[in-house]
């Protein structure tokens, strides 16, 4: 029995990783919507507000790519902690992009919710 369950759990894990990867770009842009943040703050908010735990080393290449695409801007700020921090903020094109992505994500999620509605009774 266990031999049959393990591959299915593994497949579920892979699927979850793909879903999270797909939503990561939107999540990072969304977390920057209200204010400028530095890398570790972005990671902590993703975890505390959305339950997203991503490998720490992946956030900076992602932010660097977003900066190259003009979606975010960055500046070094001297902090009370005794070392400078690099803060990221959304640019005007970044704000436009996150609105479009959010709209697209909601439409997708709403459609999926409709499809999943019949499962609610069955899963109880």
């Amino acid at each position: 029995m266990n031999d049959q369950r393990e591959p299915s759990l593994d497949e579920l894990g892979k699927w979850e990783i793909q879903v999270r990867k797909g939503g990561l770009g939107l999540a990072v842009l969304a977390v920057l919507w209200p204010e400028k943040l530095y890398g570790l703050e972005i990671l902590r908010r993703l975890h505390s507000q959305a339950g997203m735990s991503i490998p720490e080393g992946t956030i900076y290449p992602l932010l660097s790519r977003m900066k190259a695409e003009g979606l975010v801007d960055s500046e070094w700020v001297e902090a009370d902690a005794g070392h400078p921090r690099k803060y990221y903020r959304l640019t005007a094109p970044g704000r436009g992009r996150v609105r479009e992505m959010a709209q697209s994500w909601r439409a997708f999620a709403t459609g999926l919710e409709r499809l999943l509605a019949p499962l609610e009774g069955a899963s109880k």
Binding site: Y38, L40, S64, G82, H83, R85, K86
Partner: peptide, 16 residues
């Protein structure tokens, strides 16, 4: 860019 990457990683570890 390499220098900035290193500076940012240093800042990350010190914050951590």
């Amino acid at each position: 860019e390499a220098r900035e990457t290193i500076a940012e990683l240093r800042s990350h570890v010190l914050d951590k």
